[in-house]
Amino acid sequence: MKDQNTTMRGIAVSDLVKETGAFKAKGCRLVQIGCTGIGDAYEINYTFDKDYVFETVRITVHDGDVIPSIAEHYWASFIYENEIHDLYGLTVEGMSIDFGGHLFHTAIENPFKNPPEVTKVEKETPAPGPEEGDA
């Protein structure tokens, strides 16, 4: 069994379109775009391949951020970008086809969205008084 050649590196959101352009110039194909929720942020992985060398670049974004689309280099990116929009509730700007949230119909909106930060309120524990005693 041979190991598959996969690499991964993080880049800044502002470099995304430029980096994608470099992959395109190298003659890579777009393999996938995938999103992962990590507590209070999201990692978005863009995987490209040429000759079975799978290179992934990763951006980290937060709720409310606007992600630039890579449609100018890869027209086919719309399917993944719409998926991210529908499942994670992130905004992607400049998609080649915008489904407007109608690619996936889900029972709850953005099921993969990170749970909102819950500020714990100190629960008032009623002082155990003799009148509520459960003897």
Binding site: Q32, G34, C35, T36
Partner: peptide, 18 residues
């Protein structure tokens, strides 16, 4: 696991289909 993602072939073949 924290995350399991699947990119299936049909998903990738939608743009060519279009």
């Amino acid at each position: 696991l924290v995350r399991h993602r699947v990119r299936t072939p049909t998903f990738a073949n939608i743009p060519p289909l279009v």
